[in-house]
């Protein structure tokens, strides 16, 4: 317990680092992933094929390998992002691949006849996207998106392997100066579990909110 009290400020900093990295990675990868999904749907094979390869590679590789690539291989070609920078880049690359698939599935679920109807009504592409397609895609993709996030936050523990001082790295350092590894690792696990649990609750709330708002609206 003493070692935890002594290390508390460092655990706090590490938790904060994990949270802001997660928020940044999520925001960037969601925006890029959603944009690429729209591109892949509307620009045809020349765009969608490379994107499929991209998503296969980055969903198939262990996160650790991607992070090591960003941390060790990029400096060899003259791009040194530092440990936090390469962790953020690595997780974003992986995140984009998953978000791409989530939003692609959402776009595919939109009834194609609706698009014909909007064209018949003379709506522009942008207006169709904004008022017709995206609200549906968001509703369809939201549960999968939230589920992915709740599962994804834990993988940030891997950043400790590329010298990012997030929760797991601080835990390892604290273990080195104490004789209570079990307790310290449980603390680290609880920090992640707490963040993941908040996201799990958010996931439940979001999916309920979206289903009532749109579900009832359609039935009315």
């Amino acid at each position: 317990m003493d070692v935890f009290i002594a290390q508390f400020p460092r655990f706090l900093d590490a938790t904060w680092l994990t949270i802001w990295m997660f928020v940044l990675v999520t925001t960037v990868s969601t925006l890029i992933g959603a944009t690429l999904a729209v591109l892949a749907e509307w620009a045809g094979k020349p765009v969608s094929l490379p994107l499929s390869v991209y998503s296969w590679v980055f969903r198939g590789l262990p996160e650790l390998i991607v992070l090591l690539g960003c941390y060790l291989a990029l400096p060899a070609i003259g791009l040194d992002l530092g440990s936090v920078g390469s962790a953020i880049l690595g997780f974003t690359l992986v995140g984009i691949a998953f978000q791409l698939e989530i939003f692609r599935a959402g776009l595919n679920a939109v009834d194609k006849r609706i698009l014909e109807a909007t064209r018949a009504l003379g709506m522009s592409w942008w207006l169709t996207m904004r008022r017709v397609v995206l609200p549906q895609v968001i509703r369809i993709a939201m549960p999968a998106w939230a589920t992915f996030l709740a599962g994804n936050v834990k993988i940030f523990a891997v950043a400790s392997a590329v010298a990012v001082t997030e929760v797991m790295a601080v835990t390892r350092q604290a273990i080195a100066v104490s004789d209570q590894p079990f307790f310290l690792i449980m603390v680290a696990a609880s920090i992640y579990a707490a963040i993941a649990s908040i996201l799990m609750v958010l996931e439940a709330v979001l999916s309920r909110r979206f289903s009532t708002r749109y579900g009832l609206g359609l039935r009315r």
Partner: peptide
């Protein structure tokens, strides 16, 4: 499902020797 896999590996490798 809420715990990172890495923390469980650490528990098994660094934590159990405590006992």
């Amino acid at each position: 499902r809420a715990m990172p896999t890495l923390s469980l590996l650490f528990l098994a490798y660094y934590g159990l020797p405590q006992f």
